[in-house]
Design a protein around this nucleic acid. Structure first.
Lengths: 232, 232
DNA sequence: TAGTGGTCTAGACCACTTT
DNA sequence: AAGTGGTCTAGACCACTAG
């Protein structure tokens, strides 16, 4: 693991263990340099990442501070963390409602930035957290990049499969949010009523080489989910 | 102006002028070092900022690329840009519906991280873009930090007043998003119907010393507004 | 193999806050 | 005045991509 990654993880653990609860202050850069035996830039890189995640903030001439913790069930928009991380300690079930291989039509090929007729997996999943419908997800995976995707994978963690088994390396994701009225069918699946409000996210995940491999529409239960974003 | 700030601004201009349209590729780091006569780290810092804004992305061993442009009317969640920047070229009217000085009750003083009874400005504004109701905003400003706020300021750009006249320096903002059903009164103001969906953002803006000086609830018209966020 | 971005180091000086 | 984070430089070596 890279040095700065190790430091990010370690500091996150130390923050969760409430090591800096007293005055919410982290050790100074100088102390962190000694503790981790790295250069100043490496410390600053790690702190920058924690800042972008909304976990700490820095004040020139004063110090670095732990931010107020976020509520459980909050979706972090600035990182691709996955439902498991957003809902720590809760039981997550993925109900597969549909899975098939189709060829992209004009609209989808444009959206996925691939040739017309490219084979893609289409998945429809209902994600359930502690027995309560959490989100309804419709996802397309480019089959050139994800050659196989089965029921057994779709009901577990697709994320882990892509990362660990297919060794895909994620780059960045574009997320577009809108408020919508629920259709009758979607409302039924989410245990809500037709025309109830919902937040729909159009999520476009790119590999680290910039290729888009996945586009999905996720409709969230407005009663149980809220979203968090940091602006700098 | 700082070097990296200048480079960020200049590259943004060059991107908007479609200088890199041919293959969406930016000059290499080495070329940018020559062009701007700065060190590699300064270039990399500037590029990092543009990456976090969702404007460019980098591919190791290959190059740096311009991202697809976002639609107009899209609110960028990762930066505090203001309505004017999110709606370039459109006419923006701020209708002041209420303005008063009150003292914080328990709930508000906790939310604003200040003492009970602290005087705060309360403003209610309807923001209108090209004649169409865009957002309904209820904001509290800590009067210890913003000693004066008048009608004439509230109907113009409060943001500019705080930055240029009061010389406040913004640090970071926490944004919490939820989907809600519109109340009857709010719906009327936004030219929508009761129980229509809306996105409500609870926006907490901090100064660069970490002090929270402003908390607001903004309700957006779901028909005209969408939101954008990058995850890395 | 050459080119390009990613990680890491060491050190100088500046800007701001606290004492 | 002392302490702490912010900006900037110069240079080394690594990892990945493309020809």
């Amino acid at each position: 693991m890279l040095k700065y990654e190790m430091i990010v993880n370690d500091l996150q653990k130390r923050i969760m263990n409430e090591e800096f609860e007293e005055n919410h202050k982290l050790p100074t850069e100088e102390k962190l340099i000694e503790e981790y035996k790295v250069s100043r830039n490496t410390i600053r890189n790690a702190i920058k990442i924690l800042t972008n995640l909304g976990i700490v903030y820095s004040v020139q001439g004063n110090g670095m501070f732990v931010r107020a913790p976020k509520k459980k069930g909050t979706v972090y928009l600035n990182s691709t963390r996955g439902v498991t991380t957003d809902n720590p300690g809760n039981k997550i079930i993925n109900k597969l409602l549909d899975i098939q291989v189709i060829e992209t039509d004009e609209k989808l090929s444009q959206q996925m930035n691939c040739k017309l007729g490219t084979p893609v997996y289409y998945l429809k999943r209902l994600r359930i957290v502690d027995g309560v419908p959490y989100a309804l997800e419709r996802t397309y995976y480019n089959k050139d990049i994800v050659p196989y995707l089965g029921k057994e994978i779709a009901e577990g963690s697709i994320f882990r499969y892509l990362k660990d088994d297919l060794k895909l390396s994620f780059g960045f994701a574009d997320k577009y949010l809108t408020a919508i009225k629920l259709s009758k069918e979607d409302a039924q699946l989410l245990n809500l009523n037709e025309n109830d409000p919902a937040i729909m996210i159009n999520d476009n995940i790119h590999l680290s080489n910039g290729l888009l491999f996945n586009t999905s529409n996720i409709i969230y239960n407005y009663q149980t989910t809220n979203f968090y974003s940091v602006a700098q």
